[in-house]
């Protein structure tokens, strides 16, 4: 079966000669939520940014639904069907909530364009704040705007970089519940997270990245009880 998103031996980084990704490989199947875990500096964010076209890929490839998107420019990824929600500064603060969504919707062909009303149905909080500048929303509401902005372009795969960062535990729960609802609409999700417990609770599978390579991949329920996971965070290898 063709993977929804597949990284094949990806090597890359911000500066030539200083690789962050050292042959990372991972396949995300259609309809899955996959959590990408790992210690700080492991290359998790770099891997999703590379897929989004924001970090140069030196070798290897990224496939989206079987199509090679390795060299596709960042602004074309949305049209290809790959959505990305960065960790910080992920909304246009000076644009209203509605304008954030209108812009994202207008940038994809009509046949891919999602309904803004459907986004307000999925995130009812935002419907009430639609005229407010996104920069005046709370952290959790901003995350929802960012996710809605990505979803309105009807991506087949949605990548999120630490959506729980800076949120209270209560809001993390709300955001992750919304992500489960997003998955129910048929969107495949790749979730970069430091909050291991919360990520494993909603993920089908998880991968642990260390020093730019995947070291452990398995069912989320299995990894939750796997002692090797803690070992990798503490710097031990996998045996």
């Amino acid at each position: 079966m063709t993977a929804a998103l597949e990284f094949c031996a990806v090597e890359g980084g911000y500066e030539p000669g200083l690789p962050i990704l050292r042959g990372a490989s991972l396949a995300v199947q259609q309809g899955e939520i996959v959590a990408l875990l790992g210690p700080n500096g492991a290359g998790k964010s770099t891997l999703v940014k590379a897929a989004a076209g924001l970090v140069p890929i030196w070798s290897g490839s990224v496939m989206l639904g079987g199509r090679d998107i390795t060299r596709v420019p960042a602004h074309r990824m949305v049209r290809e069907g790959l959505g990305f929600v960065p960790q910080t500064e992920n909304v246009f603060a000076n644009l209203s909530v509605l304008e954030n969504l209108q812009l994202a919707a207008a940038l994809v062909p009509k046949e891919r364009r999602g309904s803004i009303d459907a986004m307000f149905h999925l995130f009812p909080d935002l419907a009430r704040q639609r005229s407010l500048p996104a920069g005046r929303l709370s952290g959790g509401q901003r995350q929802m705007v960012a996710v809605a902005r990505a979803l309105v372009a009807s991506p087949s795969v949605l990548m999120l970089d630490e959506p729980s960062a800076g949120l209270s535990p209560l809001l993390v729960g709300v955001v992750f519940e919304r992500l489960k609802a997003v998955r129910e609409t048929g969107v495949t999700i790749l979730l970069v997270e430091q909050n291991v417990k919360a990520a494993l609770a909603i993920a089908d599978r998880a991968a642990v990245l260390v020093e730019g390579r995947e070291r452990l991949v398995g069912a989320a329920s299995d990894l939750a009880d796997d002692g090797r996971l803690a070992g990798l965070y503490l710097g031990a290898g996998v045996h």
Binding site: R76, F84, E89, F92, A93, A104
Partner: peptide
């Protein structure tokens, strides 16, 4: 406001 995010948004 944010050229990198603008690219990501399409």
């Amino acid at each position: 406001q944010n050229p990198a995010l603008a690219r990501v948004a399409g």
